[in-house]
């Protein structure tokens, strides 16, 4: 398991766990980021922080400090799920 913030740009991962007591994680869960979901770190901001993460057909900006509680299983070239299969 790796923290989400450690992924390389372009790398995919499967969300293993998050910390529901954190406000950030609650917001992300409302957006549909739940355990088992495949996500992709699209890129880092030019200054290294925040990061852009793609999941469930949307791209979301996340601060590194706020993403630290998200743990993922890295899947080297796992293609992101198509909307149909995530539905």
């Amino acid at each position: 398991m790796t923290p989400l913030s450690q992924l390389l740009p372009g790398q995919y991962g499967k969300l293993v766990s998050l910390s529901p007591e954190r406000a950030v994680d609650q917001r992300l869960m409302a957006l549909g980021l739940l355990p088992g979901m495949v996500l992709k770190l699209v890129r880092r901001a030019p200054l290294g922080d925040p990061i852009a993460v793609e999941f469930g057909g949307q791209t979301v900006s996340l601060r590194m400090a706020e993403a630290e509680s998200l743990w993922v299983d890295v899947a080297a070239d796992c293609p992101i799920q198509k909307p149909k299969s995530t539905l």
Binding site: R22, A23, V24, P50, Q58, T59, V60, S61, E66
Partner: peptide
């Protein structure tokens, strides 16, 4: 005031 997480949809 409770700070809001900076989760911003692009």
């Amino acid at each position: 005031i409770r700070p809001q997480p900076f989760v911003l949809e692009l």
